[in-house]
């Protein structure tokens, strides 16, 4: 549990960090909160020769809500997300999800940027970002580009981010209406056995569903945005029959694996229950 030797860098600007990454190339890894990378290094599953720590870059720490769009700097911690009053009001699902990540100590250190950029299917934020249809901003030697969260994840630990790019910020629209993040886990701090993020809005008639978005976590090697299920609820409204159809659609789109959290048939059944609860809970909050 002792990492190999590495050089430690602590740049004070994003530009300096990108330049360092460009200079050091494959031998370097960017360090955010470190909750994934440091254990991997201790197990010597990751042996970067250079660590570029982003924690001194103040430009990466912000939460701004402007014209109905939320902008969050990559180095914003989960603790900061939880305690941002306006964010909690405008996009309450962020707080609800963040509270399900790790424990308070982890959330003081863990960042939203690290959580979404690492590509770990167990992380909670990627699924939520897909649910919110968030956009990630990446900065590399060739400048800045934007990638939709729904296009970002390719496979476990493989994302659209180039090795020389740093994920600098995340943006998404404020989200009125009902919300729920349901997560089944073995204990506090654990990754999800199954988790679902759901956003629902009622139409002006107070009956129909004008907007639905569902995404699932740790049930495939990437987060799963359940587009068909979301569409189905929008088309048919939220009722017992449509919920069951939407849940079935969600379950058809996941590919859980057998591991210490349980076999595949269990995970699918639990995921269905979690999703059902999340939809009902979100609808009850509209």
């Amino acid at each position: 549990m002792i990492p190999g030797t590495f050089e430690y860098h602590q740049p004070d600007s994003v530009q300096a960090a990108v330049a360092l990454l460009d200079e050091l190339g494959d031998d370097a890894r960017v360090l955010a909160g470190g909750h994934s990378l440091i254990p991997m290094m201790k197990l010597r599953l990751a042996m970067p020769e250079h660590l570029i720590d982003l924690r001194r870059i103040d430009d990466l720490k912000f939460i701004r809500i402007e014209s109905g769009v939320v902008h969050v700097g990559a180095m914003t911690t989960q603790h900061e997300l939880i305690n941002h009053a306006e964010l909690a009001q405008q996009v309450p699902i962020i707080r609800e999800t963040s509270l399900q990540i790790g424990d308070p100590q982890i959330r003081y250190q863990g960042t939203i940027g690290g959580n979404v950029a690492n590509g770990d299917p167990g992380n909670d934020m990627p699924g939520l970002m897909q649910c919110l249809d968030a956009t990630f901003t990446l900065l590399g030697p060739d400048g800045e580009r934007k990638v939709a969260a729904r296009e970002f994840y390719e496979a476990a630990y493989f994302t659209a981010r180039d090795d020389l790019e740093i994920l600098t910020s995340i943006s998404f629209a404020v989200s009125p209406g009902g919300y729920a993040y349901e997560k089944q886990k073995r204990k506090i701090g654990d990754y999800a056995t199954a988790a679902a993020a759901v956003l629902l809005r009622k139409a002006g008639d107070g009956v129909a569903c004008s907007f639905a978005s569902i995404a699932m976590t740790n049930l495939a090697d990437t987060p799963i945005h359940c587009e068909a299920a979301s569409q189905l609820l929008q088309d048919q409204g939220v009722n017992d029959a449509s919920i069951e159809a939407a849940v079935a659609s969600c379950i058809a789109s996941i590919e859980p694996v057998d591991d210490n959290r349980g076999p595949v048939d269990f995970k699918k059944h639990a995921a269905a229950q979690i999703t059902r609860r999340a939809i009902k809970s979100a609808w009850s909050r509209t």
């Binding site: 089944q184 073995r186 959290r261 349980g262 076999p263 048939d265 269990f266 995970k267 059944h269 639990a270």
Partner: peptide, 16 residues
């Protein structure tokens, strides 16, 4: 009696 084993018990008893 972790979650999946309890679930399997219920499943084998036809409770699903």
């Amino acid at each position: 009696h972790d979650h999946w084993r309890i679930w399997q018990t219920a499943n084998k008893l036809g409770l699903h």
